[in-house]
Computed example of a mutant assay.
Amino acid sequence: MSEEDTACSGFFPVSRAPGSQGHPASERGGIEMSTGEKAKAKAEQVVGKTVRKVAHAVHKETLAAKGAALEARGRMRGTKERAKDSFKH
């Protein structure tokens, strides 16, 4: 283990993404993170909508509310990512 790996985080080595060459996402432009976050937001929306609709079909209102909350969280995450993109360009 080199001294460079432990310099930033104390004892534990810093894990880096393959191909990042040691640069944080902010120095690379952060495109990869934004795309991943957008995908996560869309996935939350789809899962939330599916859970909500299935729960309504089987009359499980508590589960339907949880699905609606998950869907709303996905929408908010997507809105945040679109706002971040608008400031980048």
Rank of each mutant, 00 (worst) to 15 (best):
E71N: 12
G48H: 05
Q45H: 00
E37Q: 14
R77I: 01
A83C: 04
F87D: 07
G36R: 07
M1N: 06
Q45G: 03
F11N: 13
V14T: 15
H59I: 11
S26Y: 04
V46H: 09
S2N: 14
A7F: 13
E44W: 09
G22D: 12
P13K: 11
V46N: 07
G36I: 02
R73V: 01
L63V: 15
A39D: 10
V46S: 07
S15E: 14
A57C: 05
G10M: 08
E4K: 11
G29C: 03
A64L: 07
Q45T: 06
R73N: 04
A39R: 12
H89Q: 12
E81W: 00
A69E: 15
V14S: 07
K84A: 08
A69Y: 07
G19F: 00
S34K: 10
K42G: 01
E32C: 01
S86F: 02
V14W: 03
V54I: 15
V58A: 00
A55T: 05
M33R: 03
K42C: 05
K88Y: 03
A68R: 13
R52P: 02
K84S: 04
I31P: 00
G29F: 00
F11A: 10
P13R: 08
V51R: 00
P24S: 01
K84H: 05
K88R: 13
G22Q: 13
E44L: 15
G29T: 01
S15V: 14
P24Y: 01
R28D: 04
K84R: 14
A41L: 02
G74A: 04
E37M: 15
A39K: 11
V47C: 06
G30H: 04
G78Y: 09
V51Q: 02
A17R: 13
E61Y: 09
K42N: 08
D85C: 02
M33A: 08
K42Y: 09
V58T: 07
H23K: 14
E27Q: 14
R77G: 01
S2Y: 12
F12D: 11
F12M: 13
F87Q: 11
P18T: 05
K80V: 02
H89G: 12
I31H: 02
A39P: 01
Q45K: 04
E3D: 14
E81G: 00
F12I: 14
A65V: 09
R75Y: 02
G10K: 11
R73A: 12
A7N: 08
T79E: 08
G48F: 08
A65D: 15
K42T: 11
I31R: 06
L70G: 03
V47F: 13
F12C: 06
Q45E: 14
H23S: 06
A57I: 04
V46Q: 10
V14G: 01
A65S: 14
V47S: 08
K80L: 06
D5I: 12
E27H: 14
F11D: 15
T35K: 04
S86D: 03
T6R: 14
F87I: 09
R82L: 06
A41P: 01
P18I: 02
M76L: 10
S86K: 04
M33N: 06
S34H: 11
A43R: 11
A72D: 11
R16P: 06
